[in-house]
Nucleic acid binder design. Structure first.
Length: 645
RNA sequence: GCUGGUGUAGCACAGGGGUAGUGCAGCUGAUUCGUAAUCAGCAGGUCGUGAGUUCGAAUCUCACCACCAGCUCCA
């Protein structure tokens, strides 16, 4: 007798049976059920239940169900590729968020035409509704099966599997793939597949390895599901900062200036200025000292900091880096070695600490040419840089202060909701030249940081080999509308560089000691922040940061004088206002202002001039009716002061 | 840097071996209008850049540049 607990109900059975049979008996089997979890482990519906277990049935709505579904879709893709291009070698094909991919070693390029043909073949395979069967083999038989099928990458994967690990395969029709699974029970469940693109990807993600062809796709159990997904993608495209940022004239790029060097147009520049002033003021309130340091320095500075050894590829060097007989300069990729000089300006006592240094700092990084992306990844950018020089006993409190400031800034602009935290650590296995310092130093730094994060109750993921070369980081990661993640804010603990720079303070006991340093940003890089703001608000920035807050729309030219009067009063109150004095209809002026996503429009005609009022229109709520200018200004100033979203 | 795609006026798009069109935007004029496009006229492009093939290239070939997606790398 075995007892199967489905959560909502439980049933007893005499003999072993499959999950599907059990679900059917319990009247829980439906078309939507794709797979199951048995005692927490994902399995196919054909999995045989031999003993009592808790079973959770998975549908496409469950993240794990969708994952299994996409994974099976990747096998359909691989099968289609093998049918149409049998000489292709299989590598790996996992499910990813929102879809799947499969990496192939193939001589033919996967052009859009090829992808269309593959989609056709996938449909056929789905129609054939092949059973998907799992089987395991001992290592030697697994190897000979894959050798026989001439799949060298699979052979390598098997060889790398740890001893004693079960080696499982999945078969559907003539197609067999080495795979941990689980999978759906038949190909027919995959009703809608779209192959979205083909790109290059290195075998095992290593640049030294062969470039494989990665085919991305997305799959759904219904055609409607796919249609909805494509519509959502379309919506995401409408919010893309790279599109609306250019359309609404926040920024542009120019071929002759170069890659990764965007121009901030007046609107973009205004928003960045507003953010910078605000962040600088917030930092001043928190005891930061403002610095202004040079954009470049001699090679010798970077030799001390370690950038010359660890970051040379990322720097713009002016002069011949190898000619030691001549001066050689480099643009700064980070502010640290410059700001340290402020501390080094004179002898420091423990009373000087914590010393919080802040700077709106422009940096230059020579990114690889394929890396640039709109305002998100650029070669010159400006960040709210800061370095805190501390006694060890101040580390936790100051770290907390940095985290609170970052959360306050991100929360205020409205980006915090989409952020996650990542504890970025070094990789002890990484080649020596990537990280500075000893194993012991890294362990101390990471342990300290881990303890602080736990004390502060931060929920984080761990990123191995994501650390800076001088220390571990807490990275605040932002996920954009397409689901792609980038770092917005970073807070780093550095126990190494003070020593390299000879930064010491005299402690209470008269001893000279090395301080700890926190590297941190408040809001991250302004270009990237602007990009995410445009995306988050679909171009309709909150009033407090909108480049223009109010546009006055005169109906006829006889109203212009009154409009100018209104503008002067609002400008005197500190608002950003303009008058649309073009010879256009009021409908056209409203339409333009709406399309430009201006927060407020004032429609001014005979009535308003006569009554000494204004007719207010909000971009969100439309016509708000007549009110006095004084009330409007008061309301608006409050909205701005509160930084309302 | 690597893989694939794209590049025609400020923007959205046609066209395509015989030296370029449409709509919007712009300019000029008329119109003076009440909550998302008034009408008319004008002007605007060495078809991303450079080389090659050709009697002739925006169209074919190659190289380069930029943009997009992904890989790798990072804020």
């Amino acid at each position: 007798m075995i007892r199967i607990d489905f959560g909502e109900k439980a049933m007893d059975f005499d003999a072993p049976l499959t999950v599907y049979e059990a679900a059917k008996a319990a009247e829980l089997a439906s078309r939507d059920v794709l797979a199951a979890k048995v005692d927490g482990k994902a399995v196919a519906l054909t999995y045989t239940l031999e003993k009592s277990a808790a079973v959770q049935l998975l549908t496409f709505a469950d993240a794990e169900g969708a994952h299994i579904f996409n994974h099976t879709a990747s096998h359909l893709l691989a099968q289609a590729v093998k049918r149409l291009y049998p000489q292709t070698k299989l590598t790996i094909g996992p499910a990813v968020e929102g879809g799947f991919y499969y990496d192939f070693d193939s001589d033919i390029p996967f052009t859009p035409e090829v992808l269309a043909a593959l989609e056709g073949e996938i449909k056929k395979i789905a129609k054939e509704n092949l059973r998907i069967e799992r089987f395991t083999l001992p290592r030697d038989e697994a190897l000979s099966l894959m050798r026989e099928r001439e799949e060298p990458y699979k052979v390598q994967l098997i060889e790398e599997l740890p001893e004693g690990e079960e080696i499982s395969f999945y078969r559907q029709g003539e197609f067999v793939d080495l795979c941990a699974g689980p999978h759906l029970f038949a190909t027919g469940l995959v009703k809608a597949v779209k192959l979205t693109q083909c790109t290059g990807a290195y075998w095992k993600g290593d640049q030294k390895n062969k470039v494989l062809q990665r085919v991305y796709g997305t799959a759904f159990p219904t055609k409607e599901g796919l249609a909805e997904h494509l519509a959502a993608l379309e919506e995401a495209r409408r919010r893309d900062h790279n599109k609306i940022g250019r359309d609404l004239e926040y920024f542009t790029t120019v071929d002759v200036i170069g890659q990764g060097l965007p121009i901030l147009l007046p609107k973009g520049a205004r928003v960045v200025q507003l953010l910078q002033r605000w962040v600088e003021d917030e930092e001043m309130k928190r005891g930061y000292l403002l610095t202004k340091t040079p954009y470049m320095a001699k090679r010798e500075l970077y030799k001390i900091s370690g950038h010359w050894d660890h970051y040379l590829d990322g720097m713009f060097v002016l002069g011949d880096p190898d000619d030691e007989t001549k001066e050689c300069f480099a643009l700064r990729p980070m502010t640290c070695p410059f700001q340290y000089q402020v501390f080094l300006n004179r002898a420091r006592s423990y009373r000087d600490l914590p010393m919080r240094l802040g700077e709106t700092s422009t940096l230059f990084r020579n990114e690889d040419s394929g890396e640039m992306h709109g305002l998100i990844r650029v070669r010159q950018f400006t960040i709210s840089e800061g370095h805190l020089v501390l006694r060890p006993d101040q580390l936790e409190e100051e770290f907390r202060g940095c985290l609170e400031l970052a959360k306050y800034c991100l929360g205020t602009v409205g980006l915090l909701d989409r952020c996650t935290f990542r504890f970025s650590q070094w990789d002890p296995a990484n080649p020596k030249n990537k990280y500075e310092g000893t194993k012991e130093q890294w362990e101390v730094a990471q342990e300290t940081m881990g303890k602080i994060l736990d004390d502060l109750g931060v929920t984080y993921s761990v990123g191995i080999d994501e650390a800076a070369f001088y220390g571990p980081k807490l990275d605040i990661q932002y996920k954009n509308v397409y689901g792609k993640e980038d770092t917005l804010v970073t807070i780093q603990i550095d126990m190494l560089l003070a020593q390299r720079f000879g930064m010491v303070y005299t402690d209470k006991d008269g001893e000279k000691k090395y301080p700890y340093i926190i590297h941190r940003t408040s809001l991250g890089c302004y270009e990237r922040t602007l990009a995410y703001l445009l995306e988050t608000y679909a171009g309709a920035l909150p009033t407090w940061m909108a480049p223009t807050q109010v546009r006055i729309l005169p109906i006829g030219e006889e109203h212009l004088a009154y409009c100018d009067e209104l503008r002067a009063k609002m400008e005197a109150a500190g608002l950003r206002v303009e008058v649309d004095d073009r010879n256009e209809t009021i409908g056209k002026k409203i339409r333009n202002a709406q399309l430009e996503k201006l927060p407020y429009m004032l429609v001014i005609g005979d009535n308003e001039v006569h009554d000494h009022t204004i007719a207010v229109r909000s971009r969100k709520e439309g016509d708000l009716g007549a009110m006095t200018l004084d009330k409007f200004i008061a309301d608006l100033l409050l909205e701005v002061a509160e930084k309302r979203k």
